[in-house]
Protein backbone atom coordinates (compact mmCIF):
# COMPACT_ATOMS: atom_id res chain seq x y z
CA UNK A 1 0.00 0.00 0.00
CA UNK A 2 2.80 2.36 0.86
CA UNK A 3 4.11 2.18 -2.69
CA UNK A 4 1.17 4.44 -3.54
CA UNK A 5 3.11 7.19 -1.79
CA UNK A 6 6.39 6.38 -3.54
CA UNK A 7 8.00 8.48 -6.21
CA UNK A 8 7.83 5.72 -8.84
CA UNK A 9 5.51 5.68 -11.84
CA UNK A 10 2.66 4.21 -9.76
CA UNK A 11 3.25 6.37 -6.70
CA UNK A 12 1.67 9.69 -5.96
CA UNK A 13 4.72 10.86 -3.96
CA UNK A 14 5.91 13.27 -6.62
CA UNK A 15 2.47 14.79 -7.02
CA UNK A 16 2.04 15.14 -3.27
CA UNK A 17 5.40 16.85 -2.93
CA UNK A 18 4.54 19.15 -5.81
CA UNK A 19 1.23 19.76 -4.10
CA UNK A 20 3.01 20.77 -0.90
CA UNK A 21 5.19 23.19 -2.87
CA UNK A 22 2.07 24.61 -4.51
CA UNK A 23 0.37 25.01 -1.13
CA UNK A 24 3.39 26.93 0.15
CA UNK A 25 3.51 29.09 -2.98
CA UNK A 26 -0.20 29.95 -2.79
CA UNK A 27 -0.09 30.51 0.97
CA UNK A 28 2.91 32.83 0.86
CA UNK A 29 1.56 34.84 -2.08
CA UNK A 30 -1.90 35.04 -0.53
CA UNK A 31 -0.49 36.05 2.86
CA UNK A 32 1.61 38.82 1.29
CA UNK A 33 -1.34 40.01 -0.76
CA UNK A 34 -3.37 39.85 2.43
CA UNK A 35 -0.83 42.10 4.13
CA UNK A 36 -1.31 44.65 1.35
CA UNK A 37 -5.11 44.44 1.68
CA UNK A 38 -4.71 44.48 5.46
CA UNK A 39 -2.56 47.62 5.48
CA UNK A 40 -4.95 49.37 3.12
CA UNK A 41 -7.92 48.20 5.18
CA UNK A 42 -6.33 49.28 8.46
CA UNK A 43 -5.39 52.72 7.13
CA UNK A 44 -8.91 53.11 5.79
CA UNK A 45 -10.40 52.13 9.12
CA UNK A 46 -8.12 54.53 10.99
CA UNK A 47 -8.71 57.39 8.56
CA UNK A 48 -11.10 60.20 9.31
CA UNK A 49 -12.99 59.72 6.04
CA UNK A 50 -16.42 58.23 6.61
CA UNK A 51 -16.52 56.72 3.12
CA UNK A 52 -13.16 54.94 3.54
CA UNK A 53 -14.06 53.58 6.97
CA UNK A 54 -17.37 52.39 5.57
CA UNK A 55 -15.78 50.57 2.63
CA UNK A 56 -13.23 48.88 4.90
CA UNK A 57 -15.95 47.95 7.38
CA UNK A 58 -18.06 46.36 4.63
CA UNK A 59 -15.00 44.49 3.33
CA UNK A 60 -14.05 42.93 6.67
CA UNK A 61 -17.64 42.20 7.71
CA UNK A 62 -18.62 40.51 4.46
CA UNK A 63 -15.43 38.54 3.90
CA UNK A 64 -15.23 37.37 7.50
CA UNK A 65 -18.96 36.60 7.65
CA UNK A 66 -19.29 34.49 4.49
CA UNK A 67 -17.88 30.95 4.29
CA UNK A 68 -14.45 30.86 2.65
CA UNK A 69 -15.71 28.25 0.20
CA UNK A 70 -18.32 30.68 -1.14
CA UNK A 71 -15.77 33.50 -1.46
CA UNK A 72 -13.52 31.19 -3.46
CA UNK A 73 -16.35 29.97 -5.69
CA UNK A 74 -17.55 33.51 -6.34
CA UNK A 75 -14.06 34.63 -7.31
CA UNK A 76 -13.43 31.52 -9.37
CA UNK A 77 -16.51 32.15 -11.46
CA UNK A 78 -16.33 35.92 -11.38
CA UNK A 79 -12.70 36.83 -10.73
CA UNK A 80 -11.85 37.34 -14.39
CA UNK A 81 -14.90 39.54 -14.87
CA UNK A 82 -13.95 41.65 -11.85
CA UNK A 83 -10.36 42.06 -12.99
CA UNK A 84 -11.52 43.00 -16.47
CA UNK A 85 -13.82 45.60 -14.94
CA UNK A 86 -10.86 47.06 -13.07
CA UNK A 87 -8.79 46.86 -16.25
CA UNK A 88 -11.41 48.84 -18.13
CA UNK A 89 -11.21 51.60 -15.55
CA UNK A 90 -7.54 51.89 -16.49
CA UNK A 91 -8.38 51.76 -20.17
CA UNK A 92 -7.54 48.13 -20.91
CA UNK A 93 -10.22 46.66 -23.16
CA UNK A 94 -8.95 43.15 -23.79
CA UNK A 95 -9.96 39.82 -22.36
CA UNK A 96 -8.07 38.96 -19.20
CA UNK A 97 -8.03 35.35 -18.14
CA UNK A 98 -6.92 34.54 -14.61
CA UNK A 99 -5.42 31.11 -14.09
CA UNK A 100 -6.28 28.90 -11.14
CA UNK A 101 -3.18 30.04 -9.26
CA UNK A 102 -3.98 33.75 -9.44
CA UNK A 103 -7.62 33.11 -8.58
CA UNK A 104 -6.55 31.07 -5.56
CA UNK A 105 -4.10 33.73 -4.42
CA UNK A 106 -6.65 36.49 -4.96
CA UNK A 107 -9.41 34.64 -3.09
CA UNK A 108 -7.33 33.50 -0.14
CA UNK A 109 -5.52 36.85 -0.09
CA UNK A 110 -8.83 38.65 0.13
CA UNK A 111 -9.84 36.48 3.12
CA UNK A 112 -6.41 36.76 4.71
CA UNK A 113 -6.51 40.54 4.24
CA UNK A 114 -9.79 40.89 6.12
CA UNK A 115 -8.22 39.27 9.16
CA UNK A 116 -4.94 41.16 8.74
CA UNK A 117 -6.86 44.43 8.68
CA UNK A 118 -8.03 43.91 12.25
CA UNK A 119 -4.62 42.75 13.44
CA UNK A 120 -2.79 45.70 11.89
CA UNK A 121 -5.37 48.18 13.09
CA UNK A 122 -5.05 46.90 16.64
CA UNK A 123 -1.26 47.02 16.43
CA UNK A 124 -1.20 50.61 15.14
CA UNK A 125 -3.47 51.64 17.96
CA UNK A 126 -1.24 49.85 20.45
CA UNK A 127 1.70 52.12 19.69
CA UNK A 128 1.77 54.54 22.67
CA UNK A 129 0.74 57.99 21.60
CA UNK A 130 3.46 59.48 23.78
CA UNK A 131 6.13 58.00 21.52
CA UNK A 132 4.66 59.73 18.49
CA UNK A 133 4.46 63.00 20.39
CA UNK A 134 8.03 62.54 21.54
CA UNK A 135 9.13 61.91 17.96
CA UNK A 136 7.32 65.02 16.85
CA UNK A 137 8.96 66.97 19.64
CA UNK A 138 12.32 65.78 18.32
CA UNK A 139 11.35 67.39 15.03
CA UNK A 140 10.80 64.23 13.00
CA UNK A 141 8.77 64.58 9.83
CA UNK A 142 5.58 62.56 9.34
CA UNK A 143 7.32 60.19 6.98
CA UNK A 144 10.21 59.68 9.34
CA UNK A 145 7.83 59.01 12.24
CA UNK A 146 6.04 56.42 10.11
CA UNK A 147 9.30 54.75 9.13
CA UNK A 148 11.20 54.91 12.40
CA UNK A 149 8.49 54.74 15.06
CA UNK A 150 5.13 53.56 13.77
CA UNK A 151 6.01 50.75 11.36
CA UNK A 152 8.65 48.96 13.49
CA UNK A 153 6.46 49.14 16.59
CA UNK A 154 3.32 48.08 14.72
CA UNK A 155 5.15 45.14 13.27
CA UNK A 156 6.20 44.03 16.73
CA UNK A 157 2.69 44.29 18.12
CA UNK A 158 1.16 42.69 15.02
CA UNK A 159 3.46 39.66 14.81
CA UNK A 160 1.53 37.29 17.12
CA UNK A 161 -1.75 38.16 15.40
CA UNK A 162 -0.19 37.85 11.95
CA UNK A 163 1.10 34.43 12.96
CA UNK A 164 -2.49 33.38 13.53
CA UNK A 165 -3.55 34.89 10.21
CA UNK A 166 -0.77 32.97 8.48
CA UNK A 167 -2.02 29.69 9.94
CA UNK A 168 -5.56 30.53 8.83
CA UNK A 169 -4.30 31.41 5.36
CA UNK A 170 -2.31 28.20 5.07
CA UNK A 171 -5.34 26.11 6.00
CA UNK A 172 -7.70 28.11 3.79
CA UNK A 173 -5.65 27.17 0.75
CA UNK A 174 -7.06 23.65 1.16
CA UNK A 175 -10.36 25.07 -0.09
CA UNK A 176 -8.98 26.26 -3.41
CA UNK A 177 -8.80 22.62 -4.45
CA UNK A 178 -12.21 23.33 -6.02
CA UNK A 179 -10.40 25.38 -8.68
CA UNK A 180 -8.47 22.21 -9.67
CA UNK A 181 -5.15 23.77 -8.70
CA UNK A 182 -2.86 20.86 -7.79
CA UNK A 183 -2.15 21.69 -4.15
CA UNK A 184 -2.02 19.16 -1.29
CA UNK A 185 -5.78 18.80 -0.86
CA UNK A 186 -6.54 18.49 -4.57
CA UNK A 187 -3.85 15.85 -5.11
CA UNK A 188 -4.97 13.78 -2.12
CA UNK A 189 -8.63 14.06 -3.11
CA UNK A 190 -7.93 12.87 -6.65
CA UNK A 191 -5.59 10.14 -5.42
CA UNK A 192 -8.03 8.97 -2.73
CA UNK A 193 -10.78 8.69 -5.33
CA UNK A 194 -8.75 6.96 -7.97
CA UNK A 195 -6.94 4.48 -5.66
CA UNK A 196 -9.89 4.00 -3.24
CA UNK A 197 -7.48 4.59 -0.34
CA UNK A 198 -8.97 7.67 1.33
CA UNK A 199 -7.46 7.02 4.75
CA UNK A 200 -3.93 6.76 3.42
CA UNK A 201 -4.08 9.92 1.34
CA UNK A 202 -5.99 12.15 3.74
CA UNK A 203 -3.65 11.12 6.56
CA UNK A 204 -0.70 12.01 4.34
CA UNK A 205 -2.33 15.36 3.60
CA UNK A 206 -2.84 15.96 7.33
CA UNK A 207 0.81 15.15 8.03
CA UNK A 208 1.99 17.51 5.29
CA UNK A 209 -0.15 20.35 6.68
CA UNK A 210 1.08 19.64 10.22
CA UNK A 211 4.64 19.81 8.95
CA UNK A 212 3.99 23.17 7.31
CA UNK A 213 2.21 24.63 10.34
CA UNK A 214 4.94 23.41 12.69
CA UNK A 215 7.73 24.88 10.62
CA UNK A 216 5.91 28.18 10.30
CA UNK A 217 5.09 28.31 14.01
CA UNK A 218 8.77 28.01 14.80
CA UNK A 219 9.59 30.66 12.21
CA UNK A 220 7.07 33.09 13.68
CA UNK A 221 8.34 32.43 17.21
CA UNK A 222 11.85 33.29 16.07
CA UNK A 223 10.61 36.42 14.36
CA UNK A 224 8.78 37.47 17.51
CA UNK A 225 11.85 36.92 19.62
CA UNK A 226 13.87 38.98 17.17
CA UNK A 227 11.29 41.77 17.09
CA UNK A 228 11.16 41.87 20.87
CA UNK A 229 14.91 41.85 21.34
CA UNK A 230 14.90 45.42 22.61
CA UNK A 231 12.04 44.94 25.03
CA UNK A 232 12.80 44.50 28.69
CA UNK A 233 11.29 41.43 30.23
CA UNK A 234 9.68 41.54 33.63
Amino acid sequence: MLELLSFGPNGWGGQLLGGAAMTVAVSVSAFLLGLVFGSLGASAKLSRSLALTGVAEVYTTVVRGVPELLVIYLLFFGGSGAVMAVGRVFGYEGYIELNAFSIGVLAVGLISGAYSTEVIRGAVQAVPHGQIEAARACGMSRWLILRRILVPQTLRYALPGLGNVWQLTLKDTALISVTALAEIMRVSHVAAGSTRQPFLFYTTAAVLYLLLTTVSTVAFERAERYANRGVRRA
Partner: peptide
Amino acid sequence: YAPWNATDPSG
Protein backbone atom coordinates in the same frame (compact mmCIF):
# COMPACT_ATOMS: atom_id res chain seq x y z
CA TYR B 1 -14.50 9.18 -14.46
CA ALA B 2 -12.48 6.27 -15.78
CA PRO B 3 -12.33 4.97 -18.47
CA TRP B 4 -13.67 8.19 -20.04
CA ASN B 5 -11.20 10.42 -18.26
CA ALA B 6 -8.92 9.95 -15.27
CA THR B 7 -5.87 11.38 -13.55
CA ASP B 8 -2.73 9.26 -13.42
CA PRO B 9 -0.30 9.34 -10.48
CA SER B 10 1.86 11.90 -12.25
CA GLY B 11 -1.13 14.25 -12.34
